[in-house]
Design a protein around this nucleic acid. Structure first.
Lengths: 412, 412
DNA sequence: GCTATTTGTTCAACGATTGAATTATTTGCC
DNA sequence: GGCAAATAATTCAATCGTTGAACAAATAGC
């Protein structure tokens, strides 16, 4: 907000330990095999003495466990492997979307330890009622997590719309929400998570942003910079730059659905003309394929479309090719602008990727100035439709891994 | 590059001092009046004792000077103000463009202490010869800097084209360069700057990127996130996010000139169709205004255009309105995608801003989903045509301010 | 059973920050 | 003019985290 670009705050004695806690824990999280203290020392550049002291803190705080037998060959005292604790803090991920509610719990290691999907058409439901249903599901998830020895340290809610810093949902067009103060509505209910210093109790964010985070932290980990496109009824994108989500000045980045792909084209309900959503949104594709959309719930439309395309239906194939071309024009704009080398097709686009990717790649090849030197990968998301909820929960635990001092310094 | 998103390296004892040196120096640089040690202590959260020790290091390293009389009222011992040294390290900024060479020297405080502009049509000149001329100008700048007590700590070169990490200019279409290994060519000449640990001797970067950095560090400082568009023969953009230039995966971000604004429109020499450059590039505007471009050198074309528009010439007005509309479509894409609230028109666009801004704002208003809540400012650059060279030189000194330990730890 | 090897811990030393006390220097007031 | 109040900056013992080397622990190979 402020025009000063000063570095972070004062660096005091304790900051040293805080930073090294994060450094060591981050290494443990990123390693593919349980590292020993000696491994961590060489990897981080710290001495073994320091690593031992840091690890002792992490063990005492139940963020890390020792893996008993470390399978390693050669002479010497056997190492004790270190892994992220499977009993400890966890993140609660929530999602409200047009036709489902999702709740999930993700532990420190990124494993999904609880998952509930509740299918229902949420459009006719008032926001307060939808959130009440979500809270009920969350309560059960909390009990399940507790029975597994997990403590919910924070929650994140994914919404298909524009959310501001305070968690106010300004506009979720396909859900019919406008100016819904989610934190206030949820505050009426008993706390969903334990209060942990330094970890926000509830974060509300755009569904596409959180799905991108889910992709970033999936296994195997995605690249550090990529574009994740969620093709639902609307089209949103999460932009990950250098391993961090880019939210924009007000948190409203990624509105790729309203990139003009034909400036004098079809009017869009956003007020513009020729927006991508009018050519590659789910309803546009379904209509172009000649399917009556009324008889198809949104969540099965893409599946049906994929079946038709698989069977060689010419209308479906044409509709997908045209949608892919429009999508490719928008993606080419993004790649020209941001020089990304990976584009992930998520949400409803994932099952349609076999037909969407070729025209997208063709547009990239012909429109991106640097395409000759810098190949761009376009691939479907590896996560399922719960990507946003998993990403939401993952963002909570990532917050703890990135700043373990907050968790360790808590009162209990 | 690597898929791990681990935090920075080991944090040792010395890192503490390094970080606090940067913290204190950054505060001194950002302050609008010379702060006292006590001011710095309250601003940073450090104790006065620590600030004194840190400032002593900075004074010894000639990065900071004490300003003699600190004009302040009230009782108590008078404070001694601290300012960035005006004798000390400085940055050398270089630019090769289509019709000029520029060399400048910028001191720690961001003041331009030397400036040379050499007008010449560089297109028929071989890259090695152009660089040789630049080196000659740089040699004189170095002597001038030395006579002012400045030490050139590093150099940055702005080029209107694609540059890779190694400083290889892959393509500078309007200059006619292709695969020019700038660092190797410059290595044949005597060193342009003194060798300083931690400061790269020469950085080569895109002209639009460095112009954006110049805007970021101009006075008054620009916002932390904005888009800077350089409208020369080609159209490039520098993207500043959270106070830092975003370069993309390979350093080729900002190719806004090749955003499709009419996907089935005019073919572009990049191989695509309907690129912005074909509608809002300098040559396109000049042609649309009915001016014979052959009789107008590129650097005066925009001035002439502004004169005509000022006189009410209908052809010029129409050409500018159409160009502004095309530019607005591209800018709307960027704002939808990145949620920026400021767009700066630089380079050749700056003098045309009075006519370009209205259509750009109109397109933003109708095409940006969040325009209703989030006003976007479009304004001309406050820097002149040397923005890129000044930004290049500024990037060198900013590097030192951000990491003073490297400079302080040097042998001499 | 001995040696080489590697892991992890212990401990004195060091470096940087802290907080309180001290010194330095000016303004305001009597 | 002299004194008290106020603010700036420095000094110094204490504290905290890291360091480096020595040491203890535990295993494989001969």
């Amino acid at each position: 907000m402020s025009p000063t670009h000063a570095p972070a705050g004062a660096v005091r004695q304790g900051s040293l330990r805080e930073l090294n806690l994060a450094l060591v824990l981050g290494r443990i999280a990123a390693a593919d095999r349980p590292p020993s203290r000696a491994d961590l020392a060489t990897a981080t550049g710290l001495t073994r003495a320091t690593v031992s002291a840091v690890v002792e803190d992490l063990l005492a705080g139940r963020l890390v466990d020792e893996a008993e037998p470390a399978p390693r060959a050669g002479a010497g005292r056997p190492a004790r492997g270190l892994v992220l604790a499977d009993q400890g803090p966890a993140g609660l991920g929530l999602e409200v979307n047009v036709d489902y509610l999702t709740v999930c719990v993700v532990d420190l290691a990124g494993q999904v330890r609880h998952r509930t999907v509740h299918r229902a058409d949420l459009r006719p439901v008032a926001p307060a009622d939808a959130l009440a249903r979500l809270v009920e599901l969350a309560g059960r998830a909390r009990a399940d997590a507790a029975s597994q020895g997990l403590t919910l340290a924070g929650a994140a809610l994914a919404v298909p719309g524009l959310v501001d810093d305070a968690g106010l949902v300004r506009l979720a067009p396909n859900l019919g929400w406008r100016d819904v103060a989610v934190p206030a509505l949820l505050a009426e209910h008993p706390a969903l998570t334990d209060q942990v210093p330094g970890v926000p109790a509830l974060v509300v964010d755009n569904e596409a942003n959180l799905a991108a985070l889910g992709e970033l932290h999936s296994r195997p980990p995605g690249p550090a910079s990529f574009l994740h496109i969620s093709g639902e009824v609307g089209i949103g994108a999460g932009i990950v730059l250098d391993g961090a989500l880019f939210r924009g000045v007000r948190g409203w980045s990624g509105e790729i659905g309203h990139l003009p792909v034909d400036p004098q084209g079809r009017p869009c309900r956003c007020g513009g003309r020729g927006c991508l959503e009018q050519y590659a949104g789910q309803e546009a594709i379904v209509a172009a394929a000649g399917l009556a959309r009324s008889e198809l719930p949104a969540d099965t439309a893409t599946v049906r479309l994929a079946e038709l395309a698989d069977a060689g239906d010419p209308g479906a194939l044409r509709a997908l090719r045209d949608a892919g071309t429009a999508l490719g024009v928008a993606v080419a704009s993004v790649v020209n602008l941001l020089d990304l080398d990976t584009v992930v097709l998520g949400g409803g686009y994932a099952p349609l990727a076999p037909w969407l990717c070729p025209p997208v790649l063709a547009e990239i090849a012909s429109r991106v100035l640097t395409a000759a030197w810098s190949p761009v990968t376009v691939r479907p998301s590896t996560l399922g439709p719960e990507a946003a909820a998993v990403g939401a929960a993952g963002s909570v635990v990532r917050h703890i891994v990135a700043r373990p001092a907050g968790w360790l310094g808590r009162s209990s």
